[in-house]
C-alpha cells in the first residue's frame, strides 16, 4: 500500500509526531487491507440516483437567528466578526 501519511495529514489538517506517523501508517495498512475486500464489479459511469428526486425549498425569507446567538460559541470575536490569524490573500 502506497499511503503518504504526511500528505493525507496535510489535506486533513492534522499534525502527527514521527512516532504517531509510524503508528498510523501501520494501523491504516491493516484497515485498508480490510476495506479492499470489495467485490469485482464494473464501477464506471456516474454516481447518481434518479429515484430519489429532491423537494426544493421555496424562495421565501425566514430570519430566525440573532447575530449574538450565532457567534456565542466562537473562540474569538471582534466587532461582530469572528477573528482568525491574518490570512494570506487567496481568492
Amino acid at each position: 500500500m502506497d499511503m503518504d501519511i504526511k500528505r493525507l495529514a496535510k489535506l486533513a489538517k492534522l499534525k502527527f509526531t514521527p512516532e504517531e506517523e509510524e503508528k498510523y501508517a501501520a494501523q491504516m495498512a491493516s484497515i485498508v487491507a480490510m476495506v479492499e475486500k470489495l467485490p469485482d464489479l464494473d464501477a464506471s459511469g456516474p454516481l447518481i440516483d434518479p429515484d430519489n428526486p429532491m423537494e426544493f425549498r421555496k424562495d421565501e425569507v425566514a430570519q430566525n437567528y440573532r447575530r449574538d446567538e450565532l457567534i456565542a460559541n466562537a473562540p474569538e470575536v471582534q466587532a461582530g466578526c469572528i477573528v482568525v490569524p491574518k490570512t494570506v490573500a487567496e481568492e
Binding site: 493525507l8 495529514a9 489535506l11 486533513a12 492534522l14 498510523y24 491504516m28 484497515i31 485498508v32 476495506v35
Partner: peptide, 12 residues
C-alpha cells in the same frame, strides 16, 4: 483521526 485519515485517503 484514524477515520478522517482513511476517509481522506479513499477520496483523494
Amino acid at each position: 483521526k484514524r477515520r478522517i485519515m482513511l476517509g481522506t485517503y479513499v477520496l483523494s
